[in-house]
Design a protein around this nucleic acid. Structure first.
Lengths: 152, 152
DNA sequence: CACGGTATGTCAGACTCCTGACATGAGTCA
DNA sequence: TGACTCATGTCAGGAGTCTGACATACCGTG
């Protein structure tokens, strides 16, 4: 019965399609990151730090869509392995600004190229206008979901 | 420094936006499903069974984007709690067709309404044309990601 | 018929991530 | 100054999911 799994009515649900696309993207990313010894959260953390040096643990967690606890565990491993550095004492408050080491930057380079190729493949069937539309629509969806969590 | 977390260059990446939207959707869904004692996988399983009675464990796993081991664990709990039923022996092959019990159908009803309201909120800022575009674009993305996992 | 390839259900172990909780530091306001 | 609120880092425990493995059942080709 596995020959014809199509036809599920859920295929008309944009929520389901969104989840499906995100799942496919995650799978494709993990596929190219695995040979480099990384997973998606791992890569996301490094990419965030490359573009915004000095982000704190909590900020990285929000950017990678995980909890600060998970990001903290990851950061400790990344620090132990020499990919990122954090000062021993917080310069202000409690936030410890993290930065990439040269090794971290080098490790990111290959991963970033791999991920870019995946993203390019994802967009290969879309025109420039399609991409602009996708940008606008996805941002609208995210904003609408976040702004009205309260039941009215 | 938490006041201004915006401006990350990743905001121009459709891959990141896709992940962001999916994360927001998942969070919103979990938020409305938690009071009902469900999580997203739980709901997905029931919704799939409502629309396609008799799906096997493996088919449900693919539909909910988890492994068949995870779905098997969930199905055993759902069966134990009387939400779904499976025949003691497979009618053909090894696949055990699962079906909702009346209790499962009733439990799904409230959850389905809650999830529909979340999806409606997500789409509230989009026109009918936007939704058609989103449908086409998301399907294109998913297909492109799945068709070419091999490096060329 | 025998065989290999594919798909399924299930068990066991390990891992990731989350929820809950606590203490600390900064800002706000009386 | 002191109390309150918020954000952060971190620890402990648990729920959920995955990887790996095994046995079984169908289907194709030889």
């Amino acid at each position: 019965m596995s020959q014809r799994e199509a036809g599920i009515d859920l295929d008309t649900s944009l929520g389901y399609l969104l989840k499906e696309a995100a799942s496919a993207l995650r799978t494709a990313m993990e596929e190219v990151l695995r040979p480099l010894g990384m997973n998606v959260t791992h890569y996301s953390c490094l990419e965030l730090l490359a573009q915004r040096p000095g982000l704190s643990n909590s900020e990285l967690a929000r950017g990678a869509f995980v909890t600060r606890q998970s990001m903290n565990t990851l950061l400790q491993a990344l620090e132990r392995d020499g990919f990122v550095t954090r000062p021993a004492a917080p310069p202000v408050g409690k936030a410890l600004p993290a930065r990439l080491t040269p090794r971290g930057r080098q490790s990111l380079e290959a991963a970033s190229a791999a991920v870019r190729s995946v993203e390019e493949r994802m967009l290969s069937g879309l025109t420039g206008e399609d991409r602009s539309e996708a940008f606008r629509i996805l941002r609208s969806m995210t904003r609408a979901l976040r702004e009205g969590p309260v039941d009215s």
